[in-house]
Design a protein around this nucleic acid. Sequence first.
DNA 1: AAACCGTTGTCAATGCCTTGGACTAAGGTG
DNA 2: CACCTTAGTCCAAGGCATTGACAACGGTTT
Lengths: 235, 235
Amino acid sequence: MATPRKRRLPRGTLDRDTIVAASLRLLDEKGMRGFSMPALGRELGADPSAVYRHFASKDELVLAITDALIAEQDVPSLRGSCWIESLILIARHTWELGGRRPGAMALTASRTAAMPGTFAAADHIIGVFREGGFDADDAGRMYRSFVDFMLATAQQRAALLDLDPEALELDLSNEAAFRSADPRRYPNLGAAAETVATRTWTESFELGLAMLITGIEAMAPKPCRGHTHSVRPLA
Amino acid sequence: MATPRKRRLPRGTLDRDTIVAASLRLLDEKGMRGFSMPALGRELGADPSAVYRHFASKDELVLAITDALIAEQDVPSLRGSCWIESLILIARHTWELGGRRPGAMALTASRTAAMPGTFAAADHIIGVFREGGFDADDAGRMYRSFVDFMLATAQQRAALLDLDPEALELDLSNEAAFRSADPRRYPNLGAAAETVATRTWTESFELGLAMLITGIEAMAPKPCRGHTHSVRPLA
DNA sequence: AAACCGTTGTCAATGCCTTGGACTAAGGTG
DNA sequence: CACCTTAGTCCAAGGCATTGACAACGGTTT
């Protein structure tokens, strides 16, 4: 190609935002394994070490990516016909994000970022619980448990999807291998083998969500009015 | 000091079991970050590359560690006074494992291993759900969702605990920083700030578990007889 | 306009890491 | 006792994050 190889970048080209954006692009394309400083440098058309002029460490960059990703989701816009529906929407949205962008999800989901995007999302979710009649403290408690559940499950799948194809293959065949467990030694597993081996992650998530929502409703001071309640406990 | 530096190991010293055991020791001592082939070699008193005579890759070793860790937990021995209590016991045991041995948990929790230890644990848990009156298929479904929840939440905390002290510090101070969010812009967060910033992981886990258990009970064909039911929904 | 200077991009080096290939000693088999 | 497979060892290749020295850029001062 015509690139003269080594032109120095003009001064203001790099800043925290462009670097974070490039990181997200890179994570979407190459996954977490492909997210290295050399690769990021290539994505930016800059020297890898240039990033260190804007972030003290890779870890600090990860925290910034975390907040950007949360902000991008625009959680406050997710509102259902009642508060329970809102929770379901938020949970499904998060889950789906992990399926669509496993690299970004796997990298960020276990980090907390005390930044605007995170605050806005937290505020909204706490507000949703307050709609259910929880007082502020209880809403805060519910928020943390609910978010932990969402992020943890979504991240777990994301981490799996982010594995290199070879390891992923191995993991999937492992799951299928549940079918081959000796039904004499493992009678319960034997009886359920087909179901366990066949079920998709999303079915499993939906059931978990259904349990959780049922639990939340049972604890809620106010019921959810006019809910359509799209969770189906068991298939 | 007195080690003559380069004595070659006798022939049968290394095998899959000793390597897995050394790996677990290493993970407990140094965490996931300290779990490298050179370190494993040192732990074994062998050359790092010797491991490759017994495992095709580091990833294959990780899967073997996964199963060993599961087997070590002896899940089938966890039985409460009724099936719901058994579930609570299993969940708490898993959670506690992630707190005690974060390195091992963080490394393994998102991998499936089609091996004996895993089969035995799966069989037991499916059996517990059948005690609740679920048919084999539904028990299989519940099993997957329940296990996903447990492992995901336990692993998430483990991953955090496994961070290097510096990054962990940053994350914790970030959590505390929720207190400093502008209550004008984030009213709900402001009202619950103290609770959100103060709550411990375990309190959050317990509440999540309470929701889940409530949901499970609501779906169960048979109630739990004589349960003491140690989950407390809200503090 | 020339000299100055802090900022930001580049380069090279360090010290980790996984993995694979060539080498070699050990111990069982004929 | 010679032989040969196996299992440990050594070393090199290529990747990674991070850092310190250097250099160009652009704004400021005189």
